[in-house]
Design a protein around this nucleic acid. Structure first.
Lengths: 201, 201
DNA sequence: TTGCGGTTTGACCAAATGGTCAAACCAAAT
DNA sequence: ATTTGGTTTGACCATTTGGTCAAACCGCAA
């Protein structure tokens, strides 16, 4: 029945908002039910338990995130263009606020990752593999690609994670910070590229 | 009595560990009492309520953190040396794991900051002020200092915040990641400096 | 109209949890 | 030995919260 699927959507939407803003421990089933406009009993009819519902929400978030970090596959872009593409994609994902949710819950219970990233470990990280290759052929600094991975991700993700404190430190209101972020992707990419490009004397 | 002060210390230590790892909502007063080796009633004897105890712990964390971000005062170091100093200090603070705690709780309830950072807003951010000056006199790129502030902090803080996921993405175990972090402060500082130094042709 | 399968809910339950309190404890002063 | 004042605690309480269940509800086919 289409109606039931409709309720299901409303539940998932309400649950997503609650879990993302309050975290697992701060979220109440009753509140999700209220926001979805149904009874708590109905909520349990659709999703048997809080854990069950949470798992769905968390996995959805991971499904959105994981593809972002793993696509450094071959296409005919230069490494600079790839960096630009990556920062753009990552920053627009991050701004939705889903990232802090992931980090918070992974830290609460690191095991939730184990199933998902189950021993992808055999293959090398695509970013690291890519930059090892680039470092051999192109004229860029020789820095452990692990560091490059960390730095690039940091520069992309942290501004959204730490939004509240950055706003206050920089004496900006929410709107001003948003505006600052509009121009950020380009700055971040340039920054990264400048840092590892070898200076041509 | 010195004994009571001793219990108080044990409580604060236990509470710190609990709040920092589980967050406010995930922390149980009973568990804190257990870890401190006292009864729950005693716990309430020393700190009237969970909120009261939490506030102490949170403010202690802020007291450790805030001085780090605000010291760009005048001393006779070059701007490069200051950057190096900052990354070193910040990264060693961050590695304690206190930062995710702060971010998590600030996001749970942004108001907890209001009292502390109560309208420091009159004065400009010291970092921003400093780099505006540097940009005028030295030969470095003209980038909005707000971006510089965000980038430098991101590069320092995020590797610890996102530790769990970075470890998995880079196929490292906890020990290997720690080792990687040992050399990170220098890399991060160099990275930042290289990125904003003007290329000398 | 009746019966049926899926849906919805109010009432209810057991466990967890923050907090209270009177009584017991204990070291030091009288 | 007795009192005194701070400390400690077991027992207890009220509320919250995830979860259950029987009964009601609601199209729809026979």
């Amino acid at each position: 029945m289409q109606l039931s699927s409709e309720t299901e959507k409303k539940i998932l939407e309400a649950a997503r908002v609650e879990f993302e803003t309050k975290g697992y421990n701060g979220t109440r089933m009753q509140k999700i039910a209220d926001k979805a406009g149904i009874s708590k009993a109905s909520l349990h009819y659709y999703f048997r338990s809080k854990d069950n519902l949470f798992e769905k929400i968390f996995n959805d978030a991971l499904d959105e995130y994981l593809p972002l970090v793993s696509t450094w596959a071959d296409n005919d872009l230069s490494w600079e263009e790839k960096v630009e593409q990556f920062t753009k994609d990552m920053i627009s994902f991050i701004r939705h606020g889903r990232m802090l949710f992931i980090i918070r819950e992974v830290n609460r219970n690191p095991q939730i990752l184990e199933e998902r990233i189950k021993r992808k470990a055999k293959s090398q990280n695509p970013f690291v593999a890519y930059f090892e290759a680039v470092q051999k052929s192109k004229n860029i600094r020789k820095v452990d690609p692990n560091y490059l991975y960390i730095i690039l991700n940091s520069v992309c993700s942290y501004p959204a994670i730490n939004k509240e404190m950055f706003q206050r430190a920089l004496r900006l209101n929410a709107k001003q910070y948003e505006e600052l972020m509009d121009g950020y992707a380009k700055i971040a990419a340039d920054f990264f590229i400048q840092a590892i490009k070898k200076t041509i004397k």
